[in-house]
Design a protein around this nucleic acid. Structure first.
Length: 242
DNA sequence: CCAGACGTTGTT
DNA sequence: GTCTGG
DNA sequence: CCAGACGTTGTT
DNA sequence: GTCTGG
């Protein structure tokens, strides 16, 4: 599956590779920490590319990792919706609405799996050979509920902005990935980005085909010697540099 | 009819 | 063991 | 996903 | 919101 990953590539490089709108405004950088991230974890805001309106531009968005369906009464469900199974995502109540019209690319350049042997757990980093960033197939949602976890009391009846969240779709691990775990994130082929992102694309059969592991995906894996500490206490600077 | 779930993975 | 926070 | 907490009362 | 279980 995919419960931790990296994004070390600068935003300007990502903008070129994934062809999304990005104006290098100082405001944007000061509002969001978009520096190198070695240990992206669920509940954090993650970088995604989406097309909101049919025919519209590809836009960068920062989405809460852990999808909260529009009908959720609170955000508790998010811990179980950091991933969505590719074989059932079109029909599961929590995901099917997003699957129809709100697909996105989750930007990454590596993801971790932990190899367990007895009591010890060791992190391994999967990357695409060459180290270039890749796009994981994702869905996003907008939630207008009120029982937020980060209750910053809005007091005056001010309408809070909706909480935008996302999930990463998983599929069966390919031979390399299955050395450590049974499932892996869906990594999209660049030629499939357009069809995946188009909100008007309702061809369920085609969408299902896009999220099967593509032939020729050239992954590498290596142990990471420095322990991957919890992001909350150690920040992102805890992975051995490449 | 209403009440309650709605999700994932891995491990024993 | 299980829940929460990141 | 992992890491870390997990409890109380009263006193400074 | 919508489906399932009782």
């Amino acid at each position: 599956m995919c419960g931790r990953y990296t994004l070390r590539t600068p935003l300007t490089v990502l903008a070129g590779q994934f062809e999304f709108e990005f104006l290098d405004q100082p405001d944007f950088h000061s509002q969001h920490d978009l520096g190198p991230r070695f240990n992206i974890a669920p509940t954090q805001d993650v970088a995604a590319v989406r097309v909101v309106e049919p025919g519209g531009p590809r836009q960068l968005a920062l989405l809460h990792w852990g999808l909260i369906p529009s009908w959720a009464k609170d955000t508790k469900i998010a811990s179980g919706t950091i991933n969505a199974r590719g074989d059932t995502v079109a029909t599961k109540p929590a995901f099917r609405a997003a699957f129809k019209r709100r697909r996105c690319l989750i930007l990454a350049d590596g993801y971790y799996e932990w190899l367990r042997s007895g009591k010890t757990k060791l992190p391994y980093l999967y990357e695409i050979k060459g180290g270039q960033p890749f796009a994981m197939a994702g869905l996003w949602e907008s939630w207008h509920g009120e029982k937020r976890h980060d209750s910053r009391s809005a007091s005056q009846g001010e309408s809070e902005s909706p909480l935008e969240s996302c999930t990463i779709i998983t599929t069966e691990a390919n031979p390399l990935a299955s050395q450590i775990h049974d499932r892996m994130p869906v990594i999209l082929h660049p030629s499939d980005y357009r069809a995946w992102l188009d909100p008007a694309n309702q061809d369920v059969a085609e969408l299902a085909r896009l999220i099967t592991t593509y032939e020729g995906l050239d992954l590498t894996v290596r142990p990471v010697n420095t322990y991957v500490n919890n992001a909350r206490n150690q920040g992102d600077k805890c992975i051995a540099p490449p």
